[in-house]
Design a protein around this nucleic acid. Structure first.
Length: 471
RNA sequence: UCCUCGAUAGCUCAAUGGUAGAGCAACCGGCUGUUAACCGGUAGGUUGUAGGUUCGAGUCCUACUCGAGGAGCCA
């Protein structure tokens, strides 16, 4: 009850959409930001979005009903308002319902230089106003999907009894060989302490040794998999690579499950189930947002996602993939030869031209893969898998891990991995070591795949890339 | 890091080496159910920065800055 004695209920769009009939002809109060204002001589229409639902709410304001009519008719896009009025279900109109206002209060004005207009903006421009872009349709949809996808990922693993591990953000290990590292230090940038050789003396640093931001939680996850059996990490990851592409960021999130008593086949089964589960949940949880992507972002997206849900992913060994590529009529810029890593053009050809769906490529040559991957009996390949998907490229990379201590040590020696730093990783093999496997999913690449948005900078709220750390 | 392309009004884009324009947004006005509303009008510019060629440069040349796409690296 408000002071005026009218039965008035504060509500939000999410609730109204769920059960409009419950509110029919009742007095309600809704607050939101103006998305559009179409004023006429004696009445007008306000589209307001309160952030709780993708679609805006239509507010009808009439000179006879609203005392601040003149002020309301001049409201600009971006202003924040509170509206009180009668809720009306309008089954025959373009919008499912509207509110007939009797009071509209300006909560926060938006001056005429508000950069977001009710028109199409380029993504490049919107990146420059990343603090305002979540108020647009596209980014409203992207970031709600991002939130729901994170939820769906957790739900998938939790339903299966996986234990969520918070792997460290700061690590002392720089031996994982997964790209350039961000140094974490409290040493002064000017004149840091030096040792007798004239090198920076990291023994005087905060941790008494070199420390970096993590590039992967995998090694720590392996330790927990050998205690809990099924675990996953889901957290931020940092790469200081000087790579400027629509698929790379310096700070991104990774999902890394790790499963014990499991081999590469189990690993691929898990990856496939996870992708399908997340897609299915997102389509069920955010139909308005997905419809927007299908219609305005990527015309082929709907068919692609539905195909994934209905069909098994393809699986092909690296060796067979090379044979397919060698027989291909397509002209490749880079030569195809056993022992060479697959180039982007080769991966795209396989997933987009040969299989037309996600494909696992397995059993890569030992020499082009990481030291921890399990060696196959042929002595040439390792039990690795990459999941290639149309449009995005490499979405998942994983492997069965080398559980045999002597073979692991031998590979570390061959690839110049510092044995002393990873003593604990070797002990995992010494004490109750068993076969186990895992993979890493680039969370942003998953979002790109789900939404059809082609640039990683547009699926991260405030993206960090080379030479760019605004906001 | 390499290759290619680009930078003109707040936004999206035009403009043979010869007076910088349009649509949208903004502002003013019109319109009794609009929904990317519609109609009329007004205002808005050191053409990314610094040099150079030329009688004359948004346009040609050089360097730089920023952005995008492709490649490498990877998730």
């Amino acid at each position: 009850m408000n002071p005026g004695g009218i039965d008035l209920e504060k509500t939000v769009m999410r609730i109204l959409v769920r059960d409009p009939e419950r509110y029919a002809d009742r007095e309600i109060e809704v607050s939101g930001w103006v998305r559009g204002n179409r004023d006429q001589k004696a009445f007008g229409f306000l589209a307001i979005n309160d952030g709780t639902h993708f679609n805006p709410l239509q507010v009808v304001y009439d000179q006879g009903n609203v005392s601040s009519f003149e002020e309301v008719s001049r409201l600009r896009v971006g202003a924040a308002v509170t509206v009180r009025g009668k809720f009306l279900v309008t089954p025959d109109a373009k919008q499912p319902f509207e509110i007939i206002a009797h009071e509209i209060v300006l909560e926060g004005d938006a001056p005429e230089d508000y950069p977001i207009q009710p028109k199409r903006h380029t993504r490049e421009f919107l990146r420059e106003v990343a603090h305002l872009r979540p108020r647009t349709n596209l980014f409203s949809a992207v970031f709600r999907i991002r939130s729901l996808a994170a939820y769906a990922v957790h739900e998938f693993f939790q339903e299966r009894g996986f234990v969520y591990i918070h792997s460290p953000i700061i690590t002392a290990s720089d031996a994982e060989g997964a790209g350039e590292l961000f140094r974490v230090t409290t040493l002064p940038a000017q004149k840091p302490p030096v040792n007798e050789q004239g090198e920076v003396d990291f023994s005087q640093d905060f941790f008494g040794r070199k420390a970096n931001l993590t590039v992967s939680g995998q090694l720590e996850a392996e330790a927990f998999a050998l205690a809990f059996r099924d675990v996953y990490t889901f957290g931020p990851t940092f790469r200081a690579e000087n790579s400027n592409t629509p698929r790379h960021a310096a700070e991104f999130w990774m999902i890394e499950p790790e499963i014990a008593f499991a081999d590469l086949q189990d690993d691929m089964d898990l990856a496939e189930q996870m992708i399908k589960s997340v897609i299915g949940k997102i389509m069920a949880l955010a139909p308005e947002e997905m419809e927007f992507f299908f219609k305005f972002v990527d015309k082929g997206l709907e068919v692609r996602l539905r195909t994934i849900l209905e069909q098994d992913f393809a699986r092909v060994t690296y060796t067979n993939a090379i044979e397919i590529l060698e027989k291909a009529k397509a002209q490749f810029e880079y030569p195809v030869a056993w022992g060479n890593d697959l180039q982007t053009e080769h991966e795209r050809y396989l997933t987009e031209q040969v299989f037309h769906k996600p494909v696992f490529v397995t059993d890569y040559p030992r020499d082009i893969k990481a030291f921890y991957m399990r060696q196959n009996d042929d002595g040439k390949t390792v039990a690795a898998m990459d999941l290639l998907v149309p449009g995005v490229g490499e979405l998942i990379g994983g492997s069965q891990r080398e559980e045999r201590a002597e073979l692991l040590e031998q590979r570390m020696k061959e690839t110049n991995i510092n044995r002393d730093e990873l003593w604990w990783y070797l002990e995992l093999r010494k004490y109750g070591g068993v076969k186990h496997a895992g993979f890493g999913v680039g969370f942003e690449r998953l979002i790109m795949y789900l939404t059809g948005v082609g640039n990683i900078r547009d699926v991260i709220p405030f993206p960090r890339t080379v030479n760019s750390c605004e906001f």
